Simulated scan of single mutants.
Amino acid sequence: MREPADFDAFYDATSRRVLHQLYALTGDLGRARDCTQEAYARAWRHWPAVTAATSPEAWVRGTAWRLASGPLRRGVKRGPKQPAAPPGAESADLVAALLRLPERQRYAFVVRYLAGAAVADIAAETGTSVATVENRLAKAHTTLARILPGDIAALTGGHRV
Rank of each mutant, 00 (worst) to 15 (best):
L67N: 04
S91W: 12
V50N: 07
T36R: 00
Q37P: 14
A154T: 07
F109P: 05
R66I: 03
V110D: 05
A53E: 02
D34C: 13
L99K: 15
R66F: 08
A96Q: 06
A138L: 10
P56H: 01
P80W: 13
D151S: 14
D28Y: 11
G30N: 15
E57P: 00
G27V: 07
R17G: 05
A120K: 08
D151C: 12
G27Q: 06
E125N: 05
G150K: 12
G27A: 10
Y11K: 11
P80D: 15
L25R: 13
A138H: 08
H141M: 02
A85Y: 06
T51L: 12
V76C: 03
E38S: 13
P149E: 09
Q37F: 09
R2Q: 11
I147Q: 12
Q37M: 14
P149K: 06
L67Q: 01
R73A: 07
T132Y: 03
A140W: 05
Y11P: 11
W44D: 05
T126E: 08
S91D: 11
A145T: 09
D6L: 14
G27I: 07
E134P: 01
P48L: 03
A115P: 00
A13P: 08
G30A: 15
L98H: 11
E3W: 14
A84E: 12
A39N: 00
R160A: 12
S55I: 04
C35R: 04
G30F: 14
E90R: 12
A96F: 06
V110R: 02
A24Q: 11
A41Q: 05
A39H: 00
P83F: 13
D93H: 15
G62W: 07
A58S: 09
P48H: 02
L19Y: 11
G157N: 00
R78G: 02
P102V: 11
H20I: 02
Q37R: 13
W44Y: 05
D12E: 14
A154N: 04
G62I: 09
P4G: 02
A85L: 10
Y40L: 00
V95N: 08
P102C: 10
L101Q: 02
N135H: 11
A118T: 08
T26P: 04
V18T: 04
Q21C: 08
T51H: 12
L114Y: 02
A131L: 15
K77E: 15
T36G: 00
H20N: 07
A153M: 09
K81T: 08
A154Y: 00
Y107N: 10
V161D: 03
D121E: 10
